[in-house]
Amino acid sequence: MSEAPSVVLVTGVSRFLGGHLAARLAADPSIERVLGVDTTPPSREMRRRMGRAEFVRVDIRNPLIGKVISTAKVDTVVHASLSGNPAQSGGRSMMMEMNVIGTMQLLAACQRSDTVRRLVVKSTSAVYGASRRDPATFTETTEPKAIPPGGYAKDAVEIEGYVRSFSRRRPDIPVTTLRFVNLIGPRIDTSFVRYFSLPVVPVVMGYDARVQLLHEEDAVAVLERAAAEDLPGVFNVGAAGVLMLSQAIRRAGRISLPVPQPAVPLIGRFTRRARLVDFSPEQLRLLNFGRVVDTTKLQDEFGFTPRWTTVQAFDDFVAGRNLRPVIDPATFGRAQNAALAVARALPTGS
């Protein structure tokens, strides 16, 4: 049986996942101390939620993070700050800096430390890329057919590379890498959430992606479980079931706007300038082909089954955000009744 954590360090606490994880860990009396680090302080509401968890304002790109780990005698590090949302991270280049350089520094500090005995890294299923040559579902061992050309997905591939070399150098520290699918829920803020909140949702003409989601609460629960036990390995984390992109847009009551493939980057630039959604190129590819991961390993080895299915998570998001259908379903019901009345009035011909 693996030892329970006593001092936990969580990165990225000013954002949903890190903040809520810190709050959950702080609520566990068996954990002595919870340290949350980030470059920006969490919101007032988040700090209230975090309770006894301590916030340390430190940039993980700075060697100072090593000091924090050694002085507090941190034994479990949860690196939850990996972000794919440039809007929250101060732009794209800043996001890349924070993701890649931050992870390198954090890993360097962990390698030096003699107190750290567990590492959990939040990664993303974007490392699989998305192309027409990919199988319908990705297992943890599937090689990506198209290496993500840049942006967030490439950063994630590099980060996983650093994590692998870290575990080669420190084989005594069990490392859990969690490849999350897109998160959704009533409270979390991601590019995907913003995308579905647009009244008119641009989609790539002629393509309909399969979308797999994970409820925000399930994401926090997975990280919590990974922090509490030694579960080394790489795991896909996603909910059961699939929604088609067009279907999701209809469920949210939005209207989809098919955009021809060549015009997609243009629309992407427009939504970024207008500060609506910042979609990176590999996320746009996701809208073409979609991505579904196999979560058998998560259920069997990791021992976690998400409570929400993809459809339930999406419906919870729609209900929680109070998204009203752009076209009222009652209008449709009236049209159907009218058509039935006409059918009744016509001679039956028998």
Partner: peptide, 23 residues
């Protein structure tokens, strides 16, 4: 037939149908 088509369209427009992992 009108009723059937109506129900079908309603299902499609509100997204109340299911797809498997392969789409």
């Amino acid at each position: 037939r009108v009723a059937e088509v109506g129900e079908f369209l309603q299902r499609r427009l509100t997204g109340r149908y299911s797809v498997d992992d392969f789409g």
